[in-house]
């Protein structure tokens, strides 16, 4: 067993990390020379990982172009090596790598576009949540509203960006080539599973801010206080509108009362 394990380790180092020499000794130099055998498998590895990333990030691939995307994929496979025989979650860290590569460049929007694309992947892989039960919500005593604790739907995500991230995504779909003004300001988008599709719904900044507070697990009363503190004195946050936005975008999955109380 040790000899098999050691041989497999030499293959891994040759195919992924380019350490060819030790493996060459293990291979038959016949119809295909050993050095060519290794190149075929190195090429297969690069193509497998590039393909897996391209399937999850078609907009990033289009934005950076084929050659650059290949370079990114190559760095990714080395920095974030696969730890599963199932590639469905392989690309999870690409937004992190893009942030590292492009933070202080004119392409600093790329990590947010990648986060949007990855959120689309994630919601496809989970069961669709039922929408928030508005009837049950209507039965809550208004005096208890500050104690309401909303929980994000497991089949929805929020991506907030200081860039027009949804406009960038939309303008880079196949057969679309609409210019985007990168200085157009921030955009916030709720990504949710909707049957066999994924829905992208833009929400206002106040709704996104409220959603971020809700995500921390604090009750609505505290979230409103916190929101009021960060809002300019002459602009009262429209909480009802923000909650309505988040509900219709299907970001909110359910609610609880804190401290626990009956809903009737």
């Amino acid at each position: 067993m040790n000899s098999l394990r050691e041989l497999q380790a030499r293959c891994y180092r040759a195919f992924l990390q380019g350490e060819d020499a030790p493996l060459r000794e293990d291979l038959v130099d016949k119809t295909i020379p050993a050095s060519i055998s290794i190149r075929v498998y190195q090429n297969n590895a690069r193509e497998t990982y590039r393909g897996a990333l391209a399937a999850s990030y078609p907009v990033i691939e289009r934005l950076v172009g084929d050659a650059c995307f290949r370079g990114i994929a190559r760095k990714y496979m080395l920095d974030y090596p696969s730890s599963s025989g199932d590639l469905q979650n392989f690309g999870a860290a690409l937004p992190e790598l893009l942030a590292e590569l492009y933070a202080d460049t004119g392409f600093a929007y790329l990590p947010d576009v990648a986060a949007l694309e990855w959120a689309m992947e994630e919601v496809q892989l989970v069961e669709e949540n039922k929408p928030l039960d508005l009837t049950a919500l209507a039965e809550i005593d208004p005096g208890s509203y500050p104690h309401l604790r909303f929980v994000r739907s497991t089949s929805a995500r929020l991506v907030s960006s200081r860039y027009p991230v949804l406009s960038i995504w939309r303008s880079n779909q196949p057969d679309t080539d609409t210019p985007v003004n990168l200085d157009a300001g921030s955009e916030h988008v709720v990504i949710s599973r909707s049957g066999s599709d994924v829905a992208l719904v833009p929400v206002a900044a106040a709704a996104a801010e409220l959603a971020a507070l809700i995500e921390t697990g604090i009750p609505l009363g505290l979230a409103i206080e916190s929101l009021a503190e960060t809002t300019a004195a002459d602009a009262t946050p429209d909480i009802a509108r923000a909650l309505q936005d988040l509900t219709s975008a299907r970001l909110l999955g359910r609610f609880e009362l804190s401290p626990p109380m009956s809903t009737h």
Binding site: A9, C11, S82, G85
Partner: peptide
């Protein structure tokens, strides 16, 4: 796979 890392390829055995 080896050592918990995967090549996600169908590699022949000796």
């Amino acid at each position: 796979s080896v050592g918990g890392y995967h090549l996600n390829d169908l590699l022949p055995l000796p």
